[in-house]
Simulated scan of single mutants.
Amino acid sequence: MDMDSVIGRQRVSPRRKPVHLNPPAPAPRNRTVPVRGRLSLFTRGRFSRFPLVGAAKGSDGPGSTPRAAAPRPGHSARTAGIAAAAVVAALLSLGAAGGIPARYRAPARVVLHEEPSSREILSRFVSPELGDETDGGPGFEMPPLPVTLAVSTYVVRPGDALSSIAARHGVNLDTLISMNGITDARRIRAGTRLRIPNLSGIVHVVARGESVGSLASRYGVSPTALLDANDLGSAVIRPGQTLFIPGARMSATDLKKALGELVAWPVRGPLSSYFGYRPNPFTGIRQFHNAIDIVAPEGTPVRSAMDGRVADTGYNAIYGNYVILTHPEGYQTLYGHLSKVSVKRGASVQQGTILGAVGTTGYSTGPHLHFSVFKKGSAVDPLKLLK
Rank of each mutant, 00 (worst) to 15 (best):
H368M: 14
I237G: 03
T183Q: 14
A252N: 11
G170L: 15
H204L: 04
P246Y: 01
V358P: 00
V267D: 02
V88R: 11
D132P: 05
S342H: 06
M1R: 10
V302F: 04
S234F: 05
M250I: 05
P143Y: 04
P301V: 01
G209M: 12
R157Y: 06
A305F: 04
H337V: 02
G320K: 03
R109S: 15
G74H: 15
Y331W: 09
D2L: 08
N321T: 00
G136K: 08
V349M: 05
G45Q: 10
G61M: 02
D381Y: 01
G346N: 11
G139K: 03
G45V: 02
V53A: 14
A84T: 15
G377F: 06
H20W: 12
G191E: 10
G54I: 08
I245P: 00
Y335K: 00
L130M: 11
P146V: 03
A96V: 14
R124M: 08
P28C: 10
R249K: 15
N316V: 05
V126R: 06
R67W: 10
A161K: 12
K384D: 07
P26E: 13
R195L: 14
V343R: 05
L145I: 07
S214C: 03
I121S: 12
I324C: 05
H113A: 13
G247I: 00
S339W: 05
R309A: 08
P279A: 01
I165M: 14
L271Y: 04
V323F: 06
V155M: 13
F42H: 08
P297S: 15
S339V: 03
G95M: 14
D2S: 12
I177R: 03
V111P: 03
S251H: 06
S13N: 07
M179F: 09
A108G: 15
S211Y: 11
L145N: 13
P101S: 08
G260E: 09
I177L: 09
F50K: 14
S211N: 10
D4V: 13
R44G: 11
D160L: 05
Y277V: 00
G346V: 01
L226A: 02
A69W: 04
L259N: 02
T175H: 00
L255P: 05
P18I: 02
V111R: 12
I292K: 00
H75T: 14
D228N: 13
N180S: 13
A317S: 15
I182W: 03
V203P: 02
N230H: 04
G260H: 09
S378P: 06
G99L: 12
P297I: 03
L162W: 04
G63N: 12
G170M: 09
K17V: 10
R72N: 11
A357S: 15
G63M: 10
S123K: 09
N180E: 09
S217Y: 12
